[in-house]
Design a protein around this nucleic acid. Structure first.
Lengths: 112, 112
DNA sequence: GTAACGTACAACCAAATGGTTGTAGATGAA
DNA sequence: TTCATCTACAACCATTTGGTTGTACGTTAC
């Protein structure tokens, strides 16, 4: 089990990277199977360079990794990073739950 | 149970809103308790207007709601929206899991 | 009523974002 | 070798973002 040592900048990059429809689609596809950058580029109505930039953003957020195969670069989704994002949201939900718990205790005390 | 009918733009706004340290802090605090905009502004080393804008971004993403009380506007975190974000990430993880499952089946078949 | 407080909103600015085209370097196929 | 393919990267551009200051307006307190 990896202790997550995410800086604020890390978290910013992760959510920022996920805040784009094309990039989320790339993550989904590359979680299912490795795809080269040019294959990805064929999927979207934009230039190769634009897709390349999206992949770069995802790579900086470590949501995907790139793996050379000949002249190609295979893009692979990183489930561990998705997991870290989930845990971050879990922490938010936990904050809310603990508030509810405290309110419950207050109501409890009041009924005595 | 609410069927989530999130458009791509909705999702973009949610993740975009979460991609900022100040905004995540606002969400955390307002999930725990309602806080007025000016109280929030006191917490950060930036102008009132800047904080107001951050709250506006969160409000457009529906991660918080505002509730007038006299001249104040109380900001309240929206746990439901956090939950929707969690479910989105769950879908990503599920994609990956199903890939693993398919790979397992392949290995299984191979061993026959 | 008047002053102070809390908010809204416009105008402005620098930097980042998301796209483009163009050029150049590796690699694979003929 | 030569040509096509895949990638990298620079330069450019319009728009968005994240901040600022200033002004105006409703509400509360005195």
């Amino acid at each position: 089990m990896v202790v997550d040592e995410l800086t604020d900048d890390d978290v910013n990059r992760i959510f920022r990277a996920l805040a784009d429809t094309t990039r989320r689609d790339i993550v989904r596809r590359t979680l299912v199977e490795e795809i080269s950058v040019s294959q990805l580029a064929d999927l979207y109505a934009m230039s190769f360079a634009a897709v390349q930039k999206h992949v770069a953003v995802l790579e900086e957020a470590r949501l995907v990794t790139k793996h050379p195969r000949g002249r190609e670069r295979l893009v692979r989704g990183n489930p561990e990073r998705i997991n870290q994002a989930q845990r971050l949201l879990d922490q938010f939900e936990q904050l809310w739950r603990s508030r509810i718990d405290r309110l419950d205790i207050l109501l409890e005390e009041e009924s005595h």
